[in-house]
Simulated assay, not measured.
Amino acid sequence: MQTKIVLAAIAAFSLSTSALADAGHSHDNKPYGVPGDAKKSARIVQVAMTEQDDKMLFVPNRIEVRKGEQVRFVMKNHGASDHEFVLGTHDEIVAHAEQMRKNPDMEHDDPNSKRLSANQNGDIVWRFTNAGTFEFACLIPGHMESGMVGTIIVK
């Protein structure tokens, strides 16, 4: 009888610790993937942040990747002002853009975003775990509206 109680306690403890371990990692899982491992190989996609005439642009603004692929986005801000690269679903991008309009000086420290000053370089490593169409945008107020938005298609 005592052995059954001990075994039941061990089983309950191991279930609770695995649930706690999983709880700590679920915040990184997004519909479009997870932060990549910078120590592992990745396809490099160079992204320029530019300003031309009255437009602000990403070049390229359309990127195709394979499901499961890890990509290192290597960004260069060629513009005269700060720009950012924020990866997300359409709904996330729209909601975050609204937050930025209310708090234009908000800074990010998320694995799916990077803010760069003029002439600064930066990168993001991301592994795309789900097929679909996702977006990247500069959410500094007025920039997305000036054309600084792109599409990522995961096949």
Rank of each mutant, 00 (worst) to 15 (best):
K39S: 07
E64L: 04
S26P: 04
S26A: 12
Q70M: 12
F58K: 03
D37R: 12
A21G: 02
S16W: 13
G33C: 11
R66M: 13
I44P: 12
D54Q: 05
G68M: 01
E51L: 00
M49W: 13
I63S: 04
D28A: 11
S26T: 14
S26C: 01
T50F: 00
D53F: 05
I44E: 09
A38R: 13
P35G: 07
V45A: 01
E64Q: 10
A48F: 02
A21W: 14
K40N: 12
S18P: 07
H27C: 04
P35L: 03
V59M: 06
N29T: 10
E64A: 11
D37P: 08
R72T: 13
F58M: 02
P35F: 07
G68E: 14
A48E: 14
G36H: 12
V34M: 05
D37N: 15
V47S: 07
A23Q: 13
M56D: 03
V59H: 09
A38K: 15
A38H: 08
R66N: 15
R43A: 05
S16L: 14
S26L: 09
A48I: 00
L57I: 00
V47D: 00
A23P: 02
P60L: 02
D37T: 11
V47N: 06
Q70V: 11
E69K: 01
V71S: 10
E69D: 13
G33K: 07
Q46N: 15
Q52E: 11
K67F: 09
G68Q: 05
E69I: 03
E51W: 00
A19W: 01
Q46D: 08
A42I: 04
K67E: 14
R62L: 11
P35Q: 08
